[in-house]
């Protein structure tokens, strides 16, 4: 591949990114996109960040985490405290959210990532519940009542560029030397270790990066919905995120994006049949797992979109299970 070509591709993708942003912003200003669609776009955006970041941990590095909502809640609380109690601008809130979630990721990751498979899943689930219970009992963050009147800073611009940043950073991480080490761990941890990959380091690294972005998603969430409480980040929330990842396809960033979009649409449709909503949701989930166990886009990813390809078959090893 020659340099000229992928420069053009980069320009093209940049163009599409900017175009989409302006298009939605314009439609929003003109009132074609009303506040309901905007709200759903924001929810989709937050879910994309959550799913892509969990995909890095679970889909690419193969570490089964059921505690992703805990990092989101740490980020949400950090940003809420920064913007409400300390009256800082939103960017400080986002930074605090990212840093505190990443620190939590390191603290939780170092001991638990020695575990494998289901055991790791349970340990992370346990950590998630511990975070929630602490939130319920600490009066500084409002206990069960949660934090109120958080300023609404999150808007289309913030969401859009945070989603783009998350996708690009995680995609580039995966395509880097470090990313390939992570994928090697997923494929065969023992072999990876034998080949000289520092497995603990890379597992904790992937976990921390995932936690960091989950924290950012939490900040966006807190500063959009005005109000947070510990029960919004329970273990069902972690499961919801995992469902997006698996539904879209493990180890496929594009899959996570598609999963977040499709599941939000399904959820919006099902609002009209409240009594049977969860039953239908369960059936859809089940059918996807049976007929497409690799998810919607299990073996298909950004790299397959020629638009984003950087060249060659360097990453041919990245495939969903």
């Amino acid at each position: 591949m020659n340099t000229n070509l992928f420069r053009r591709r980069n320009i093209l993708s940049l163009f599409i990114i900017v175009f989409l942003y302006i298009a939605v912003q314009l439609m929003s200003n003109l009132g074609i996109i009303d506040s309901y669609i905007m709200l759903n776009l924001i929810i989709i955006g937050i879910n994309i960040i959550l799913a892509v970041s969990l995909n890095l941990i679970t889909g690419f590095t193969g570490q089964f985490s059921l505690g992703h909502a805990a990092f989101m809640s740490i980020g949400a609380y950090a940003s809420a405290i920064a913007t409400t109690k300390l009256e800082q601008p939103f960017i400080v809130g986002i930074l605090m959210a990212a840093v505190s979630a990443a620190v939590a990721g390191v603290i939780i990751g170092i001991p638990t990532l020695r575990l494998k498979g289901d055991y790791l899943a349970i340990a992370t689930l346990g950590f998630g519940e511990i975070v929630r219970i602490i939130g319920l009992n600490v009066d500084y963050v409002g206990g069960a009542t949660g934090l109120n009147d958080i300023p609404q800073y999150t808007n289309w611009t913030w969401i859009y560029f945070m989603v783009i940043a998350t996708v690009l950073i995680i995609k580039n991480f995966i395509n880097s030397y470090h990313g390939r080490a992570c994928i090697a761990i997923k494929e065969d941890e023992i072999a990876a270790e034998a080949m000289g990959v520092n497995t603990t380091y890379y597992k904790v690294l992937a976990f921390t990066i995932g936690a960091l972005f989950a924290g950012i998603a939490g900040a966006l969430y807190a500063n959009y919905f005005y109000f947070i409480k510990p029960d919004s980040f329970g273990f069902m929330k972690s499961i919801d995120i995992l469902v997006i990842v698996v539904f879209g396809g493990m180890g496929s960033i594009l899959g996570s994006i598609a999963g977040a979009v499709v599941l939000s649409i399904i959820s919006a449709f099902l609002q009209s049949i409240p009594e049977l909503r969860m039953v239908v949701y369960a059936v859809i989930l089940f059918l996807i797992m049976v007929y497409r166990p690799n998810g919607l886009l299990g073996k298909f990813d950004l790299k397959d979109l020629k638009l984003f390809r950087k060249g060659g078959k360097v990453n041919a090893g990245i495939k969903g299970e």
Binding site: V246, F286, P293, N294, E321
Partner: peptide, 11 residues
């Protein structure tokens, strides 16, 4: 995969 099985169990 294990994870697909888990999601099925959740469903």
């Amino acid at each position: 995969s294990r994870i697909a099985a888990l999601i099925t169990a959740i469903s």
